[in-house]
Amino acid sequence: MANFKDWLKETFKALSPARVGEYIQESQVYRSIFRVGVPDSDRKRMLVMLGNVFLHLHPVKVRKSGIRMRYTWCMGGITFFLFLSLTFTGLLLMFYYRPTLEYAYVDIRDLREQVPLGIMREIHRWGAHAMVIAVWLHMYRVFMTGSYKPPREFNWNVGVILLVLTLLLSFTGYLLPWDQLAIWAITVGSNMARATPFAGHEGPGSALLKLGDIAFVNNQSDMRFALLGGRFVGEAALLRFYVLHCVGLPLVAGFLMAIHFWRIRRDGGISGPL
C-alpha cells in the first residue's frame, strides 16, 4: 500500500507541469527543432533571432525609436499579418468554392447559409478591405517620415509595387462571388482597359495599328480581352481572375514581400533619424 502511495506521489510529481516542460525541453526531438530553448537570457534572445528562419528577418537589436507605435503606426506589420490571415481563410474557402458559372454564386450562398465556418468568407472579405486601407496608411507613414530617402529608394519602389499588387489581389477577388456587385464592379473596372492607348480598341491610337483595312486592335484582341479572356465578363474571366487571385498574384506578392522585408534589414532596419 505504502509502495503504491509512493508510486502515486512520484507519478504526480513527474506529471507536474514544470517537470513535464522540463522533460519535453530536454528531449532530443525538441532540441532538434528549437536549438536555443526558452530565451530567458539576452544571449539566448539573440540566438533565437539568429536561428529562427522567420524571426531572422528582424535584426537582433533594433533602434528603440524605430519600434515605437507612434512612429511606425504598425501599418506594415498589420498589412503583412492581414496578408497571412487572408491566405489562411482563402485556403479554407478554396475547399468549397468552385470557379464556374454554375457554382460560383451558389457556393458563396451556401457558405453564407449552410457551410460550417462559412464566416471565413466574412473574415476574408473584411480582411481584404482592411488590407487595402492598411497598405495605404503604411505608404502614408513611410512618406511622412521621409523613409523612402536613401538608402531606401529601392525598397520604396518594391513597396509601391506591393501596393499595386494588393489592389489587384482585391480586384481579382471581387469578381469571385459572381453576383451583380462583383460582375459590374469588374465590368466597370475592366472597361477602362478598353481605352488603353494603342492596346485598347477604344483607346487613342489603336486605329492607327492596322495594315490596309485589317485592324489589329479590335474588341477581340485588345487589353480588355486579354484581361477577361473574352469580350465580356464571363466564365473565362472568372477562371482567369480565380487563378490570378489564388495563385499568381499571391506568389508574386509573397516573393516581393520577402525582398521588401530583407531590404528593410539590409537598408539599416526601420528608418529613423541617424
Binding site: 524571426l55 533594433v62 528603440k64 529613423g272
Partner: peptide, 10 residues
C-alpha cells in the same frame, strides 16, 4: 532614443 538599441526579442 535613436542611439538606444533594444533586443528584438521580446
Amino acid at each position: 532614443e535613436t542611439a538606444d538599441k533594444v533586443l528584438t526579442w521580446p
